[in-house]
């Protein structure tokens, strides 16, 4: 669609007001808007309205929607298992120049099949903060975010303003693994894992899968099989047998091969997360 107007609001309020008008949509990193065309003739640039901040709050890490993928590092996010998972997910996204452009909000809102941040968000029980003019900010849990594509689920005037990660206590370990045949191609399989261990027993487990289904999903059967026992490699291998996700077709690889690789990648990711949770004691 031809763009007729490009607007630079200077505050969140101004941006929300502009977005409330018809035929208007946000532009952030612009990687999709420039390559695939705009979805509306009026574009509102949301990178100059203060959404590029990372805030460490009470038990929560808040990442502004306009933060670039390249800035999702431990240096900017601080050291926590949650930060580590986000950083690992972001580090392997696309290529360096694209990471310099892609924003957190754009990645969450566009939610393409291989998008990385939604997978990590899912494993971290994160919420996506959404605002729109005349309404209170909403927090949408990541599980709901991926259940239905945000393009369908959200009103058009809604703006993603932040990704909010609860910082959970306890012995936590995370890992983000992806499988691809070359260093920078879109993942064929990606797996985000977060586990909490107490007295040698896994008390919480989140295993999120990306790139294997149209939108990321949690491997709940695997999570259930992990909880309640020690994270030994035997138990992990057994838990992964419970994987019951139907891998959708992809012309680059058959579902059969991808299912097998998914299992191996999931097992390795859980193993690494467990080792990190227990300081290598598992």
């Amino acid at each position: 669609m031809r763009v007729t107007e490009y607007l630079y609001p200077e505050s969140l309020e101004a941006a929300l007001r502009l977005l409330a008008a018809p035929d208007t949509s946000p532009i952030a990193g612009g990687t999709v808007v420039s390559l695939e065309g705009a979805r509306a003739p009026r574009l509102v640039d949301i990178t100059r309205i203060g959404l590029d901040q990372v805030t460490l709050g009470q038990g929560e890490l808040l990442i502004g929607a306009a933060v670039r993928a390249a800035d999702l590092t431990l240096e900017t996010l601080g050291a926590s298992p949650e930060a580590m998972l986000i950083a690992e997910a972001a580090a392997g996204m696309a290529t360096t120049p694209l990471r310099n452009a892609i924003t957190v909000g754009g990645n969450l809102a566009y939610l393409c099949g291989w998008a990385d941040l939604p997978v990590a968000a899912l494993a971290l029980d994160a919420s996506i903060e959404v605002q729109q003019e005349g309404a209170a900010p909403q927090l949408r849990p990541a599980t709901a975010w991926v259940a239905q594509h945000p393009r369908a689920a959200l009103p058009k005037e809604a703006l993603v303003t932040a990704l909010r990660l609860p910082l959970k206590p306890g012995a936590r370990g995370v890992a983000y693994h992806r499988f691809r045949a070359s260093a920078t191609e879109n993942a064929l399989v990606s797996v985000a894992v977060a586990v909490t261990v107490a007295e040698g027993i896994c008390v919480e487990a989140r295993v999120a899968l990306g790139a294997v289904t149209p939108r990321p999903v949690r491997a709940e059967a695997v999570e259930a099989a992990l909880i309640g026992g020690p994270l030994t490699s035997a138990r992990i291998a057994q838990a992964v047998e419970a994987l019951d996700v139907r891998v959708s077709p992809n012309f680059r690889m058959s579902p059969k091969a991808r299912t097998r690789i998914l299992a191996a990648t999931t097992r390795r990711a859980i193993l690494e997360a467990s080792q990190r949770a227990t300081g290598g004691q598992a």
């Binding site: 490009y6 612009g30 990687t31 808007v33 420039s34 390559l35 990178t47 360096t96 694209l98 310099n100």
Partner: peptide, 12 residues
């Protein structure tokens, strides 16, 4: 920062 100028609008 390095960016792809084909994946960016001048307006940005």
């Amino acid at each position: 920062r390095a960016v792809f100028s084909c994946a960016l609008l001048l307006a940005q």
